[in-house]
Computed example of a mutant assay.
Amino acid sequence: MSTHSDGPDVDEAVRRLLLLMPRMVGRAKRIQVPEALQSMALAPRHLSLLSYLLLDGPLTVNDLAARLEVAPTTVSLLVSELSRKDILERREDQADRRRRIIGITDTMRPAIAQWLSPGATAWRTAVEPLTPEQRRLFVDTFLRYEAALGRGDEERAPD
């Protein structure tokens, strides 16, 4: 193992991460989906939206779109889909009756919390001891990794 005084060199870090990532994904996949949600056919695209609503409370479509970094029309489609399944509800914004506030229904909130809280708790445990600068570096590193994986998808896409 080749290391520098302050940590592993790039190749050793890559080896460690290649070992770690499949274990992390495997553990995340083993988080049991509550019975109330098993028949809902929820996909990864729903997880971030539900996580924001669980952690931050009800939000507008535009707020969700900004946080998810997608178009408001994409969020509207997801909200419509999840509303039909009685997972989300739309209600009028009392401050501006033209806007709709999106929230998790009271009946589904416990199941959503049971499902998503272990992941949020694990991330909190991982990042809480870090300084704000270290947290930014950590998140930026994951974003660069995701972008690099995306470039690989583009390179493999058929013409």
Rank of each mutant, 00 (worst) to 15 (best):
I87M: 06
E69Q: 11
V79W: 00
L37C: 04
P34R: 02
V25N: 05
E155D: 12
R124H: 15
L18Q: 09
R23Y: 09
P72K: 00
E133Q: 15
A65C: 04
A126Y: 14
R23N: 07
R90H: 07
P118D: 05
L68M: 06
G57W: 05
R90M: 09
M1H: 12
L49S: 00
H4C: 04
E133M: 08
G152L: 11
R136W: 13
D159H: 13
V61I: 08
R15E: 01
P132K: 03
R135G: 04
W115R: 07
D56R: 15
D153R: 12
I104W: 03
Q114V: 07
K29Y: 10
R91V: 14
K85W: 09
M1K: 14
Q32D: 12
V61F: 03
E69A: 10
Q94G: 14
A13V: 12
A28Y: 00
K29E: 12
P129H: 07
W115M: 02
A147M: 10
T107I: 08
R15M: 11
L78C: 10
E146W: 15
Y145K: 14
D56Q: 07
E81S: 10
S80I: 12
V33S: 11
I87F: 01
A148G: 05
R144Q: 10
R151E: 07
D140V: 05
K29Q: 04
P8K: 10
W115K: 00
R144T: 13
A157R: 08
E81C: 12
P34Y: 12
V14S: 07
L53D: 00
A71N: 15
F138E: 13
A95H: 02
A147V: 11
L64W: 02
S83C: 14
D11G: 08
A71Q: 04
K85C: 09
S80A: 06
D63G: 04
G103C: 08
A126C: 14
P158Y: 14
S48Q: 09
F138V: 05
D63C: 02
T141E: 13
D63H: 14
A41T: 13
T107H: 08
V10L: 13
R30K: 12
L47Y: 04
E69V: 00
T60C: 02
R45H: 06
R84S: 15
E146T: 03
W115V: 02
L50E: 04
P58H: 04
R91D: 13
R84I: 11
F142K: 08
Q94S: 14
V10M: 03
L42M: 11
N62W: 14
D6S: 15
A147L: 06
